[in-house]
Design a protein around this nucleic acid. Structure first.
Lengths: 300, 300
DNA sequence: GTGAACTTATAACTTTTAGTAATAGCAATC
DNA sequence: GATTGCTATTACTAAAAGTTATAAGTTCAC
Protein backbone atom coordinates (compact mmCIF):
# COMPACT_ATOMS: atom_id res chain seq x y z
CA UNK A 1 0.00 0.00 0.00
CA UNK A 2 1.30 3.44 -0.89
CA UNK A 3 0.22 6.83 0.33
CA UNK A 4 -0.34 8.06 -3.20
CA UNK A 5 -3.06 5.51 -3.87
CA UNK A 6 -4.62 6.14 -0.49
CA UNK A 7 -4.77 9.85 -1.20
CA UNK A 8 -6.30 9.24 -4.60
CA UNK A 9 -8.81 6.92 -3.01
CA UNK A 10 -9.93 9.60 -0.58
CA UNK A 11 -10.66 11.94 -3.45
CA UNK A 12 -12.54 9.24 -5.31
CA UNK A 13 -14.63 8.52 -2.23
CA UNK A 14 -15.35 12.20 -1.83
CA UNK A 15 -16.60 12.62 -5.38
CA UNK A 16 -18.39 9.34 -5.68
CA UNK A 17 -17.15 8.95 -9.20
CA UNK A 18 -13.80 8.28 -10.71
CA UNK A 19 -13.88 10.73 -13.63
CA UNK A 20 -14.60 13.74 -11.43
CA UNK A 21 -11.88 12.70 -9.01
CA UNK A 22 -9.43 12.19 -11.86
CA UNK A 23 -10.26 15.63 -13.09
CA UNK A 24 -9.53 17.20 -9.73
CA UNK A 25 -6.29 15.28 -9.37
CA UNK A 26 -5.13 16.16 -12.85
CA UNK A 27 -5.09 12.52 -13.87
CA UNK A 28 -6.94 10.52 -16.45
CA UNK A 29 -9.75 8.18 -15.54
CA UNK A 30 -7.90 4.95 -16.35
CA UNK A 31 -4.98 6.00 -14.17
CA UNK A 32 -7.35 6.38 -11.25
CA UNK A 33 -9.14 3.13 -12.00
CA UNK A 34 -5.80 1.41 -11.89
CA UNK A 35 -4.85 3.16 -8.68
CA UNK A 36 -8.00 1.93 -7.01
CA UNK A 37 -7.36 -1.56 -8.33
CA UNK A 38 -3.84 -1.39 -6.87
CA UNK A 39 -5.18 -0.38 -3.49
CA UNK A 40 -7.77 -3.13 -3.59
CA UNK A 41 -5.05 -5.65 -4.31
CA UNK A 42 -2.97 -4.35 -1.42
CA UNK A 43 -5.87 -4.46 1.01
CA UNK A 44 -7.17 -7.72 -0.35
CA UNK A 45 -10.76 -6.58 -0.60
CA UNK A 46 -13.08 -4.72 -2.89
CA UNK A 47 -13.27 -1.07 -1.84
CA UNK A 48 -15.76 0.29 -4.35
CA UNK A 49 -18.99 -0.97 -5.78
CA UNK A 50 -18.92 0.12 -9.41
CA UNK A 51 -22.27 1.32 -10.68
CA UNK A 52 -23.18 2.84 -14.02
CA UNK A 53 -23.41 6.25 -12.43
CA UNK A 54 -20.38 6.32 -10.25
CA UNK A 55 -18.93 4.32 -7.41
CA UNK A 56 -20.09 3.70 -3.86
CA UNK A 57 -17.91 2.63 -0.97
CA UNK A 58 -18.15 -0.90 0.26
CA UNK A 59 -18.10 -1.51 3.99
CA UNK A 60 -14.39 -2.14 3.79
CA UNK A 61 -13.87 0.97 1.71
CA UNK A 62 -15.69 3.11 4.23
CA UNK A 63 -13.60 1.70 7.05
CA UNK A 64 -10.45 2.41 5.10
CA UNK A 65 -11.47 6.01 4.48
CA UNK A 66 -11.91 6.50 8.21
CA UNK A 67 -8.46 5.06 8.86
CA UNK A 68 -6.94 7.04 6.03
CA UNK A 69 -7.67 10.20 7.97
CA UNK A 70 -5.55 8.89 10.84
CA UNK A 71 -2.78 7.95 8.49
CA UNK A 72 -2.88 11.29 6.78
CA UNK A 73 -2.66 13.21 10.00
CA UNK A 74 0.24 11.03 11.19
CA UNK A 75 2.11 11.73 7.97
CA UNK A 76 1.25 15.38 8.13
CA UNK A 77 2.54 15.62 11.68
CA UNK A 78 5.79 13.93 10.68
CA UNK A 79 6.38 16.34 7.83
CA UNK A 80 5.54 19.35 9.94
CA UNK A 81 7.86 18.31 12.72
CA UNK A 82 10.69 17.64 10.29
CA UNK A 83 10.24 20.99 8.57
CA UNK A 84 9.94 22.91 11.82
CA UNK A 85 13.10 21.29 13.11
CA UNK A 86 15.15 21.80 9.99
CA UNK A 87 14.07 25.32 9.25
CA UNK A 88 14.75 26.26 12.85
CA UNK A 89 11.44 28.05 12.85
CA UNK A 90 9.23 27.58 15.84
CA UNK A 91 6.61 26.07 13.63
CA UNK A 92 3.09 26.55 12.59
CA UNK A 93 0.46 26.49 15.30
CA UNK A 94 -3.21 25.98 14.51
CA UNK A 95 -5.52 26.90 17.36
CA UNK A 96 -9.28 26.56 17.53
CA UNK A 97 -11.25 28.62 20.00
CA UNK A 98 -14.65 30.05 20.78
CA UNK A 99 -15.54 33.52 19.52
CA UNK A 100 -15.25 35.19 22.91
CA UNK A 101 -11.83 33.89 23.71
CA UNK A 102 -10.85 34.37 20.10
CA UNK A 103 -11.50 38.08 20.28
CA UNK A 104 -10.56 38.89 23.84
CA UNK A 105 -8.02 36.44 25.09
CA UNK A 106 -6.01 35.06 22.23
CA UNK A 107 -4.85 38.25 20.53
CA UNK A 108 -2.71 39.27 23.48
CA UNK A 109 -1.42 35.73 23.97
CA UNK A 110 -0.54 35.47 20.30
CA UNK A 111 1.20 38.81 20.34
CA UNK A 112 3.32 37.62 23.24
CA UNK A 113 4.20 34.38 21.48
CA UNK A 114 5.16 36.16 18.30
CA UNK A 115 7.40 38.49 20.25
CA UNK A 116 9.32 35.52 21.57
CA UNK A 117 9.34 33.45 18.38
CA UNK A 118 9.52 35.75 15.39
CA UNK A 119 9.51 32.92 12.82
CA UNK A 120 6.27 31.52 14.17
CA UNK A 121 3.08 31.34 12.14
CA UNK A 122 -0.20 31.11 14.05
CA UNK A 123 -3.60 30.37 12.62
CA UNK A 124 -6.59 30.97 14.85
CA UNK A 125 -9.82 29.33 13.79
CA UNK A 126 -12.85 30.74 15.56
CA UNK A 127 -15.91 28.56 15.80
CA UNK A 128 -18.17 26.72 18.18
CA UNK A 129 -16.97 23.71 20.04
CA UNK A 130 -18.59 21.08 17.85
CA UNK A 131 -16.93 22.26 14.67
CA UNK A 132 -13.59 22.78 16.35
CA UNK A 133 -13.46 19.34 17.92
CA UNK A 134 -14.28 17.70 14.61
CA UNK A 135 -11.46 19.65 12.97
CA UNK A 136 -9.14 18.64 15.78
CA UNK A 137 -10.00 14.99 15.24
CA UNK A 138 -9.31 15.29 11.54
CA UNK A 139 -5.90 16.74 12.36
CA UNK A 140 -6.72 20.17 10.95
CA UNK A 141 -6.08 21.83 14.28
CA UNK A 142 -3.35 21.32 16.86
CA UNK A 143 -5.17 22.62 19.90
CA UNK A 144 -8.66 23.64 20.83
CA UNK A 145 -9.10 26.10 23.64
CA UNK A 146 -12.61 25.81 24.98
CA UNK A 147 -14.97 24.00 27.27
CA UNK A 148 -14.73 20.24 27.52
CA UNK A 149 -17.52 18.32 25.83
CA UNK A 150 -19.67 16.06 27.98
CA UNK A 151 -19.32 13.20 27.59
CA UNK A 152 -15.68 13.68 26.73
CA UNK A 153 -14.49 12.34 23.43
CA UNK A 154 -12.15 9.40 23.96
CA UNK A 155 -8.65 9.58 22.61
CA UNK A 156 -8.18 13.25 23.37
CA UNK A 157 -5.96 14.88 25.96
CA UNK A 158 -7.63 17.40 28.24
CA UNK A 159 -5.74 19.95 30.28
CA UNK A 160 -8.08 21.87 32.50
CA UNK A 161 -7.36 25.56 33.01
CA UNK A 162 -10.33 26.57 35.06
CA UNK A 163 -14.06 26.43 35.53
CA UNK A 164 -16.94 28.31 34.03
CA UNK A 165 -20.64 28.38 34.91
CA UNK A 166 -23.52 28.19 32.49
CA UNK A 167 -26.28 30.70 33.23
CA UNK A 168 -29.75 31.54 32.09
CA UNK A 169 -30.14 35.20 31.12
CA UNK A 170 -32.71 37.65 29.75
CA UNK A 171 -32.88 41.34 28.96
CA UNK A 172 -32.80 43.62 31.99
CA UNK A 173 -36.48 44.55 32.19
CA UNK A 174 -37.73 41.02 31.54
CA UNK A 175 -40.57 39.76 33.72
CA UNK A 176 -38.38 36.95 35.04
CA UNK A 177 -35.49 39.25 35.87
CA UNK A 178 -36.95 40.42 39.18
CA UNK A 179 -37.12 37.18 41.10
CA UNK A 180 -34.23 36.35 43.43
CA UNK A 181 -34.49 32.71 42.53
CA UNK A 182 -36.44 30.95 39.82
CA UNK A 183 -37.85 27.45 39.75
CA UNK A 184 -36.94 25.43 36.70
CA UNK A 185 -40.63 24.84 35.99
CA UNK A 186 -41.17 28.59 35.65
CA UNK A 187 -39.26 28.42 32.40
CA UNK A 188 -41.82 26.14 30.81
CA UNK A 189 -43.39 28.66 28.45
CA UNK A 190 -40.38 30.71 27.41
CA UNK A 191 -38.79 30.79 24.00
CA UNK A 192 -35.04 30.24 23.84
CA UNK A 193 -32.13 31.74 21.93
CA UNK A 194 -29.49 29.01 21.81
CA UNK A 195 -26.43 27.86 19.91
CA UNK A 196 -26.53 24.84 17.57
CA UNK A 197 -27.75 21.53 18.89
CA UNK A 198 -24.24 20.06 18.91
CA UNK A 199 -22.82 22.70 21.24
CA UNK A 200 -22.20 21.64 24.81
CA UNK A 201 -24.21 24.34 26.57
CA UNK A 202 -27.35 23.54 24.60
CA UNK A 203 -26.93 19.83 25.14
CA UNK A 204 -26.54 20.46 28.85
CA UNK A 205 -29.78 22.45 28.89
CA UNK A 206 -31.67 19.73 27.09
CA UNK A 207 -30.26 17.11 29.39
CA UNK A 208 -31.24 18.98 32.55
CA UNK A 209 -34.77 19.59 31.28
CA UNK A 210 -35.12 15.96 30.34
CA UNK A 211 -33.89 14.78 33.70
CA UNK A 212 -36.52 16.96 35.39
CA UNK A 213 -39.17 15.57 33.04
CA UNK A 214 -39.83 18.93 31.47
CA UNK A 215 -40.46 19.37 27.77
CA UNK A 216 -37.55 20.14 25.45
CA UNK A 217 -36.71 23.86 25.09
CA UNK A 218 -38.77 25.75 22.55
CA UNK A 219 -36.03 27.30 20.45
CA UNK A 220 -36.95 30.53 18.71
CA UNK A 221 -33.50 31.55 17.55
CA UNK A 222 -30.49 29.39 16.83
CA UNK A 223 -27.12 30.79 15.86
CA UNK A 224 -23.49 29.88 15.81
CA UNK A 225 -22.65 33.42 16.92
CA UNK A 226 -22.84 34.28 20.60
CA UNK A 227 -22.97 37.97 19.70
CA UNK A 228 -26.14 37.37 17.72
CA UNK A 229 -27.67 35.44 20.60
CA UNK A 230 -26.77 38.06 23.19
CA UNK A 231 -27.99 40.94 21.09
CA UNK A 232 -31.23 39.15 20.28
CA UNK A 233 -31.93 38.34 23.92
CA UNK A 234 -31.21 41.95 24.90
CA UNK A 235 -33.83 43.17 22.42
CA UNK A 236 -36.61 40.60 23.00
CA UNK A 237 -38.29 38.42 25.58
CA UNK A 238 -36.25 35.39 24.62
CA UNK A 239 -34.21 33.55 27.22
CA UNK A 240 -30.57 32.61 26.64
CA UNK A 241 -28.23 30.05 28.14
CA UNK A 242 -24.48 30.53 27.82
CA UNK A 243 -21.31 30.44 29.91
CA UNK A 244 -21.08 33.41 32.26
CA UNK A 245 -17.71 34.31 30.84
CA UNK A 246 -19.20 34.87 27.41
CA UNK A 247 -21.58 37.43 28.88
CA UNK A 248 -18.93 39.30 30.80
CA UNK A 249 -16.56 39.40 27.88
CA UNK A 250 -19.12 40.90 25.57
CA UNK A 251 -20.31 44.45 26.02
CA UNK A 252 -23.87 43.18 26.13
CA UNK A 253 -23.69 42.36 29.84
CA UNK A 254 -25.01 45.83 30.77
CA UNK A 255 -28.27 45.14 28.98
CA UNK A 256 -28.70 41.65 30.40
CA UNK A 257 -29.88 40.08 33.64
CA UNK A 258 -28.50 36.80 34.94
CA UNK A 259 -31.23 34.51 36.25
CA UNK A 260 -30.66 32.38 39.30
CA UNK A 261 -32.04 29.05 38.11
CA UNK A 262 -30.28 26.59 40.40
CA UNK A 263 -30.37 23.34 38.43
CA UNK A 264 -29.11 25.14 35.34
CA UNK A 265 -26.10 26.71 37.06
CA UNK A 266 -23.93 23.96 35.69
CA UNK A 267 -20.21 24.16 36.16
CA UNK A 268 -17.93 22.89 33.48
CA UNK A 269 -14.21 22.63 32.89
CA UNK A 270 -12.51 24.60 30.24
CA UNK A 271 -9.02 24.25 29.00
CA UNK A 272 -6.97 22.97 26.15
CA UNK A 273 -7.84 19.86 24.17
CA UNK A 274 -5.32 18.13 21.95
CA UNK A 275 -4.67 14.81 20.28
CA UNK A 276 -2.16 12.76 22.23
CA UNK A 277 0.67 11.49 20.11
CA UNK A 278 0.18 14.05 17.40
CA UNK A 279 2.94 16.48 16.62
CA UNK A 280 2.84 19.78 18.45
CA UNK A 281 5.27 22.50 17.48
CA UNK A 282 7.60 23.57 20.29
CA UNK A 283 5.83 26.89 20.85
CA UNK A 284 2.74 24.98 21.91
CA UNK A 285 4.29 24.60 25.36
CA UNK A 286 4.80 28.33 25.59
CA UNK A 287 1.22 28.92 24.50
CA UNK A 288 0.00 26.64 27.25
CA UNK A 289 1.95 28.65 29.79
CA UNK A 290 0.53 31.89 28.53
CA UNK A 291 -2.99 30.47 28.63
CA UNK A 292 -2.55 29.14 32.14
CA UNK A 293 -1.84 32.67 33.29
CA UNK A 294 -4.83 34.35 31.68
CA UNK A 295 -7.19 31.43 31.38
CA UNK A 296 -10.23 31.63 33.63
CA UNK A 297 -12.17 33.81 31.24
CA UNK A 298 -14.83 33.08 28.74
CA UNK A 299 -15.04 30.58 25.94
CA UNK A 300 -17.42 29.39 23.25
CA UNK B 1 6.60 11.06 0.63
CA UNK B 2 5.79 7.40 0.12
CA UNK B 3 5.48 4.61 2.63
CA UNK B 4 8.01 2.50 0.80
CA UNK B 5 10.79 5.03 1.36
CA UNK B 6 9.75 5.52 4.95
CA UNK B 7 9.90 1.80 5.56
CA UNK B 8 13.32 1.57 3.95
CA UNK B 9 14.46 4.48 6.05
CA UNK B 10 13.47 2.74 9.26
CA UNK B 11 15.59 -0.24 8.31
CA UNK B 12 18.52 2.01 7.45
CA UNK B 13 18.21 3.78 10.78
CA UNK B 14 18.11 0.45 12.56
CA UNK B 15 21.29 -0.82 10.95
CA UNK B 16 23.19 2.42 10.96
CA UNK B 17 24.54 1.68 7.54
CA UNK B 18 23.05 1.53 4.12
CA UNK B 19 24.70 -1.61 2.78
CA UNK B 20 23.53 -3.78 5.65
CA UNK B 21 20.00 -2.41 5.36
CA UNK B 22 20.02 -2.97 1.60
CA UNK B 23 21.08 -6.51 2.22
CA UNK B 24 18.21 -7.14 4.59
CA UNK B 25 15.72 -5.53 2.24
CA UNK B 26 16.96 -7.47 -0.76
CA UNK B 27 17.98 -4.29 -2.52
CA UNK B 28 21.27 -2.93 -3.73
CA UNK B 29 23.06 -0.16 -1.92
CA UNK B 30 22.53 2.50 -4.62
CA UNK B 31 18.81 1.83 -4.64
CA UNK B 32 18.67 2.53 -0.93
CA UNK B 33 20.87 5.60 -1.22
CA UNK B 34 18.44 6.94 -3.77
CA UNK B 35 15.47 6.07 -1.59
CA UNK B 36 16.94 8.04 1.28
CA UNK B 37 17.68 10.94 -1.04
CA UNK B 38 14.06 10.84 -2.22
CA UNK B 39 12.79 10.97 1.34
CA UNK B 40 15.13 13.83 2.16
CA UNK B 41 13.80 15.74 -0.80
CA UNK B 42 10.21 15.10 0.28
CA UNK B 43 10.88 16.19 3.85
CA UNK B 44 13.08 19.05 2.81
CA UNK B 45 15.85 18.25 5.24
CA UNK B 46 18.89 16.06 5.61
CA UNK B 47 17.96 12.90 7.51
CA UNK B 48 21.31 11.15 7.71
CA UNK B 49 24.83 12.27 8.38
CA UNK B 50 26.97 10.18 6.05
CA UNK B 51 30.20 9.02 7.60
CA UNK B 52 32.86 6.72 6.21
CA UNK B 53 31.66 3.93 8.44
CA UNK B 54 27.93 4.19 8.12
CA UNK B 55 25.28 6.75 8.69
CA UNK B 56 23.93 8.47 11.78
CA UNK B 57 20.54 10.09 12.15
CA UNK B 58 20.31 13.84 12.19
CA UNK B 59 17.96 15.46 14.65
CA UNK B 60 15.33 15.63 11.95
CA UNK B 61 15.94 12.02 10.98
CA UNK B 62 15.49 10.88 14.56
CA UNK B 63 12.25 12.81 14.84
CA UNK B 64 11.02 11.26 11.63
CA UNK B 65 11.79 7.76 12.85
CA UNK B 66 9.69 8.38 15.93
CA UNK B 67 6.81 9.59 13.80
CA UNK B 68 7.25 6.75 11.33
CA UNK B 69 6.25 4.37 14.07
CA UNK B 70 2.93 6.17 14.42
CA UNK B 71 2.41 6.13 10.70
CA UNK B 72 3.24 2.49 10.47
CA UNK B 73 0.83 1.51 13.17
CA UNK B 74 -1.91 3.62 11.57
CA UNK B 75 -1.36 1.88 8.26
CA UNK B 76 -1.18 -1.47 9.93
CA UNK B 77 -4.45 -0.86 11.73
CA UNK B 78 -6.14 0.14 8.49
CA UNK B 79 -4.99 -3.00 6.72
CA UNK B 80 -6.02 -5.22 9.60
CA UNK B 81 -9.45 -3.70 9.84
CA UNK B 82 -10.01 -4.02 6.12
CA UNK B 83 -8.93 -7.64 6.12
CA UNK B 84 -10.97 -8.53 9.17
CA UNK B 85 -14.03 -6.97 7.63
CA UNK B 86 -13.64 -8.53 4.23
CA UNK B 87 -12.73 -11.99 5.38
CA UNK B 88 -15.66 -11.93 7.77
CA UNK B 89 -13.32 -13.30 10.39
CA UNK B 90 -13.47 -11.78 13.82
CA UNK B 91 -9.90 -10.71 13.44
CA UNK B 92 -6.56 -11.13 15.04
CA UNK B 93 -6.21 -10.04 18.61
CA UNK B 94 -2.83 -9.42 20.18
CA UNK B 95 -2.92 -9.28 23.95
CA UNK B 96 -0.09 -8.52 26.32
CA UNK B 97 -0.28 -9.65 29.93
CA UNK B 98 1.73 -10.45 33.00
CA UNK B 99 2.85 -14.03 33.57
CA UNK B 100 0.35 -14.73 36.32
CA UNK B 101 -2.69 -13.58 34.43
CA UNK B 102 -1.27 -15.14 31.31
CA UNK B 103 -1.27 -18.57 32.89
CA UNK B 104 -4.29 -18.44 35.12
CA UNK B 105 -6.77 -15.99 33.79
CA UNK B 106 -6.42 -15.67 30.07
CA UNK B 107 -6.62 -19.30 28.99
CA UNK B 108 -10.22 -19.64 30.09
CA UNK B 109 -11.13 -16.26 28.67
CA UNK B 110 -9.51 -17.13 25.36
CA UNK B 111 -11.26 -20.46 25.23
CA UNK B 112 -14.56 -18.71 25.69
CA UNK B 113 -13.81 -16.19 22.96
CA UNK B 114 -12.76 -18.88 20.53
CA UNK B 115 -15.98 -20.78 21.19
CA UNK B 116 -17.96 -17.73 20.11
CA UNK B 117 -15.76 -16.66 17.21
CA UNK B 118 -14.30 -19.73 15.54
CA UNK B 119 -12.37 -17.74 12.90
CA UNK B 120 -10.54 -15.73 15.53
CA UNK B 121 -6.80 -15.82 16.01
CA UNK B 122 -5.42 -14.75 19.38
CA UNK B 123 -1.82 -14.11 20.26
CA UNK B 124 -0.95 -13.77 23.92
CA UNK B 125 2.39 -12.17 24.69
CA UNK B 126 3.49 -12.74 28.27
CA UNK B 127 5.94 -10.28 29.74
CA UNK B 128 6.42 -7.64 32.37
CA UNK B 129 4.63 -4.37 32.16
CA UNK B 130 7.50 -2.30 30.85
CA UNK B 131 8.07 -4.48 27.83
CA UNK B 132 4.38 -4.84 27.12
CA UNK B 133 3.67 -1.13 27.24
CA UNK B 134 6.53 -0.40 24.88
CA UNK B 135 5.17 -2.99 22.46
CA UNK B 136 1.71 -1.49 22.79
CA UNK B 137 3.08 1.94 21.93
CA UNK B 138 4.83 0.56 18.88
CA UNK B 139 1.55 -0.93 17.74
CA UNK B 140 2.70 -4.51 18.18
CA UNK B 141 -0.04 -5.24 20.67
CA UNK B 142 -3.71 -4.30 20.69
CA UNK B 143 -4.33 -4.51 24.42
CA UNK B 144 -2.31 -4.88 27.56
CA UNK B 145 -3.97 -6.41 30.57
CA UNK B 146 -2.06 -5.40 33.64
CA UNK B 147 -1.45 -2.78 36.25
CA UNK B 148 -1.41 0.84 35.27
CA UNK B 149 2.01 2.48 35.24
CA UNK B 150 2.55 5.45 37.52
CA UNK B 151 2.81 8.04 36.23
CA UNK B 152 0.47 7.00 33.46
CA UNK B 153 1.73 7.24 29.94
CA UNK B 154 -0.11 9.96 28.06
CA UNK B 155 -1.99 9.05 24.94
CA UNK B 156 -3.20 5.71 26.22
CA UNK B 157 -6.68 4.67 27.18
CA UNK B 158 -7.08 3.05 30.59
CA UNK B 159 -10.07 1.00 31.61
CA UNK B 160 -9.84 0.01 35.21
CA UNK B 161 -11.09 -3.44 36.17
CA UNK B 162 -10.14 -3.54 39.82
CA UNK B 163 -7.49 -2.90 42.41
CA UNK B 164 -4.49 -4.81 43.60
CA UNK B 165 -2.16 -4.26 46.54
CA UNK B 166 1.61 -4.45 46.48
CA UNK B 167 3.07 -6.37 49.42
CA UNK B 168 6.40 -7.13 50.95
CA UNK B 169 6.96 -10.87 51.49
CA UNK B 170 9.57 -13.31 52.75
CA UNK B 171 9.82 -17.04 53.29
CA UNK B 172 7.67 -18.40 56.10
CA UNK B 173 10.32 -18.85 58.76
CA UNK B 174 12.05 -15.56 58.10
CA UNK B 175 13.04 -13.46 61.11
CA UNK B 176 10.79 -10.64 59.94
CA UNK B 177 7.80 -12.90 59.39
CA UNK B 178 6.79 -12.96 63.06
CA UNK B 179 6.03 -9.30 63.66
CA UNK B 180 2.42 -8.16 63.38
CA UNK B 181 3.56 -4.91 61.87
CA UNK B 182 6.91 -3.77 60.59
CA UNK B 183 8.39 -0.30 60.44
CA UNK B 184 9.75 0.71 57.08
CA UNK B 185 13.12 1.43 58.68
CA UNK B 186 13.41 -2.21 59.81
CA UNK B 187 13.93 -3.14 56.17
CA UNK B 188 17.12 -1.13 55.99
CA UNK B 189 19.55 -4.02 55.89
CA UNK B 190 17.68 -6.57 53.83
CA UNK B 191 18.54 -7.76 50.37
CA UNK B 192 15.78 -7.64 47.79
CA UNK B 193 14.54 -9.89 45.00
CA UNK B 194 12.82 -7.59 42.54
CA UNK B 195 11.72 -7.32 38.92
CA UNK B 196 13.51 -5.08 36.43
CA UNK B 197 13.96 -1.42 37.25
CA UNK B 198 11.36 -0.36 34.70
CA UNK B 199 8.56 -2.40 36.26
CA UNK B 200 5.96 -0.46 38.20
CA UNK B 201 6.19 -2.34 41.49
CA UNK B 202 9.92 -1.80 41.75
CA UNK B 203 9.61 1.84 40.86
CA UNK B 204 6.96 2.25 43.52
CA UNK B 205 9.27 0.67 46.09
CA UNK B 206 12.11 2.98 45.18
CA UNK B 207 9.85 5.97 45.29
CA UNK B 208 8.47 5.16 48.73
CA UNK B 209 11.95 4.58 50.14
CA UNK B 210 13.17 7.82 48.65
CA UNK B 211 10.22 9.76 50.03
CA UNK B 212 11.03 8.41 53.50
CA UNK B 213 14.69 9.35 53.00
CA UNK B 214 15.85 5.80 53.20
CA UNK B 215 18.59 4.38 51.00
CA UNK B 216 17.67 2.71 47.71
CA UNK B 217 16.91 -1.02 47.98
CA UNK B 218 19.90 -3.33 47.91
CA UNK B 219 18.91 -5.66 45.09
CA UNK B 220 20.40 -9.15 45.27
CA UNK B 221 18.32 -10.78 42.56
CA UNK B 222 16.63 -9.22 39.58
CA UNK B 223 14.46 -11.16 37.18
CA UNK B 224 11.74 -10.69 34.66
CA UNK B 225 10.05 -13.83 35.93
CA UNK B 226 7.86 -13.64 39.00
CA UNK B 227 8.16 -17.40 39.43
CA UNK B 228 11.92 -17.05 39.77
CA UNK B 229 11.52 -14.27 42.30
CA UNK B 230 8.95 -16.15 44.36
CA UNK B 231 10.93 -19.35 44.37
CA UNK B 232 14.12 -17.54 45.29
CA UNK B 233 12.51 -15.69 48.17
CA UNK B 234 10.99 -18.93 49.45
CA UNK B 235 14.44 -20.50 49.57
CA UNK B 236 16.49 -17.63 51.01
CA UNK B 237 16.44 -14.65 53.33
CA UNK B 238 15.73 -12.23 50.53
CA UNK B 239 12.71 -9.97 50.68
CA UNK B 240 10.33 -9.57 47.75
CA UNK B 241 7.80 -6.97 46.69
CA UNK B 242 5.03 -7.90 44.29
CA UNK B 243 1.27 -7.55 43.85
CA UNK B 244 -0.66 -9.76 46.25
CA UNK B 245 -2.50 -11.34 43.39
CA UNK B 246 0.71 -12.68 41.91
CA UNK B 247 1.43 -14.49 45.18
CA UNK B 248 -2.00 -16.00 45.48
CA UNK B 249 -2.08 -17.16 41.90
CA UNK B 250 1.22 -18.96 42.19
CA UNK B 251 1.51 -22.09 44.25
CA UNK B 252 4.36 -20.51 46.18
CA UNK B 253 2.01 -18.73 48.55
CA UNK B 254 2.15 -21.64 51.01
CA UNK B 255 5.86 -21.16 51.51
CA UNK B 256 5.65 -17.40 51.87
CA UNK B 257 4.73 -14.87 54.53
CA UNK B 258 3.16 -11.52 53.74
CA UNK B 259 4.70 -8.69 55.74
CA UNK B 260 2.58 -5.86 57.03
CA UNK B 261 4.70 -2.86 56.10
CA UNK B 262 2.16 -0.07 56.01
CA UNK B 263 3.77 2.51 53.73
CA UNK B 264 4.51 -0.18 51.18
CA UNK B 265 0.93 -1.50 51.04
CA UNK B 266 0.36 0.51 47.92
CA UNK B 267 -2.85 0.07 46.03
CA UNK B 268 -2.85 0.31 42.30
CA UNK B 269 -5.37 0.01 39.53
CA UNK B 270 -5.26 -2.78 37.08
CA UNK B 271 -7.17 -3.14 33.91
CA UNK B 272 -6.86 -2.93 30.19
CA UNK B 273 -4.64 -0.42 28.43
CA UNK B 274 -5.04 0.37 24.76
CA UNK B 275 -4.15 3.03 22.22
CA UNK B 276 -7.11 5.26 21.50
CA UNK B 277 -7.86 5.64 17.83
CA UNK B 278 -6.03 2.48 16.87
CA UNK B 279 -7.92 -0.34 15.26
CA UNK B 280 -9.33 -2.96 17.55
CA UNK B 281 -10.90 -6.09 16.08
CA UNK B 282 -14.56 -6.56 16.97
CA UNK B 283 -13.87 -9.39 19.41
CA UNK B 284 -11.96 -6.96 21.58
CA UNK B 285 -15.27 -5.77 23.01
CA UNK B 286 -16.19 -9.34 23.91
CA UNK B 287 -12.81 -9.85 25.51
CA UNK B 288 -13.34 -6.80 27.65
CA UNK B 289 -16.65 -8.17 28.82
CA UNK B 290 -15.10 -11.48 29.71
CA UNK B 291 -12.27 -9.77 31.59
CA UNK B 292 -14.67 -7.55 33.50
CA UNK B 293 -16.30 -10.68 34.88
CA UNK B 294 -13.16 -12.44 36.04
CA UNK B 295 -10.84 -9.51 36.50
CA UNK B 296 -9.86 -8.82 40.08
CA UNK B 297 -7.12 -11.37 40.14
CA UNK B 298 -3.43 -11.15 39.74
CA UNK B 299 -1.24 -9.49 37.18
CA UNK B 300 2.41 -8.91 36.35
C1' DG C 1 52.58 8.04 4.28
C1' DT C 2 50.45 4.27 1.52
C1' DG C 3 47.48 0.65 0.42
C1' DA C 4 43.63 -2.25 2.02
C1' DA C 5 39.12 -2.34 3.75
C1' DC C 6 35.34 -0.04 4.73
C1' DT C 7 31.90 3.23 3.63
C1' DT C 8 28.44 6.20 0.55
C1' DA C 9 27.80 8.75 -4.03
C1' DT C 10 27.43 8.96 -8.99
C1' DA C 11 26.63 7.53 -13.81
C1' DA C 12 24.72 4.78 -17.34
C1' DC C 13 21.59 1.38 -18.20
C1' DT C 14 17.47 -1.90 -17.34
C1' DT C 15 13.23 -3.10 -15.44
C1' DT C 16 9.11 -2.02 -13.43
C1' DT C 17 5.41 0.83 -12.55
C1' DA C 18 2.38 4.67 -13.22
C1' DG C 19 0.02 7.22 -16.47
C1' DT C 20 -2.21 8.29 -21.28
C1' DA C 21 -5.14 7.72 -25.35
C1' DA C 22 -8.42 5.28 -27.53
C1' DT C 23 -12.02 2.07 -27.21
C1' DA C 24 -15.24 -1.23 -25.48
C1' DG C 25 -19.03 -2.43 -22.46
C1' DC C 26 -22.97 -1.44 -19.55
C1' DA C 27 -26.91 0.38 -17.22
C1' DA C 28 -30.06 4.43 -16.96
C1' DT C 29 -32.74 7.89 -19.30
C1' DC C 30 -34.99 10.59 -22.59
C1' DG D 1 -33.64 2.52 -29.31
C1' DA D 2 -30.24 6.00 -29.58
C1' DT D 3 -27.97 8.91 -26.15
C1' DT D 4 -25.65 9.87 -22.12
C1' DG D 5 -22.66 9.05 -18.43
C1' DC D 6 -20.29 5.96 -16.14
C1' DT D 7 -16.20 2.26 -15.49
C1' DA D 8 -13.09 -1.46 -17.58
C1' DT D 9 -9.78 -2.96 -20.99
C1' DT D 10 -6.06 -2.70 -24.23
C1' DA D 11 -1.95 -1.01 -26.22
C1' DC D 12 1.31 2.34 -25.76
C1' DT D 13 4.41 6.05 -23.49
C1' DA D 14 6.68 8.31 -19.84
C1' DA D 15 8.46 8.30 -15.42
C1' DA D 16 10.24 6.01 -11.54
C1' DA D 17 12.70 2.70 -9.05
C1' DG D 18 16.28 -0.60 -9.24
C1' DT D 19 20.91 -2.70 -11.01
C1' DT D 20 25.73 -2.89 -12.32
C1' DA D 21 29.93 -0.82 -12.37
C1' DT D 22 32.76 2.77 -10.80
C1' DA D 23 34.31 6.69 -8.19
C1' DA D 24 35.44 9.11 -4.10
C1' DG D 25 36.05 9.58 0.57
C1' DT D 26 37.73 7.82 5.71
C1' DT D 27 39.78 4.92 8.71
C1' DC D 28 43.06 1.61 10.01
C1' DA D 29 47.16 -1.17 9.90
C1' DC D 30 51.70 -1.57 8.66
Amino acid sequence: MELRDLEYFRVVAQHGQIVAAADQLGLTQPALSKSVARLEAAVGARLLERTPRGVVLTQVGAALIARATHIHSAVDGALREARDLSSGSSGHLRIGTGPTAGEHLLPSVCAELLRWSPGLFIRVVVGLNDVLLAALERGELDLVFGSFPEPRIAGMAYESLGEDVLTVFTRKRHALARARQIELSKLAGVRWALPNASVTSRRTLQQVLQTCRLPAPDVALESNSTQVLLAAVARSDMVGYLPTGALHASGAIRELALLNVKPLQVERSLGVISRPGAYLPPVAARLMNALRRVAPQSVE
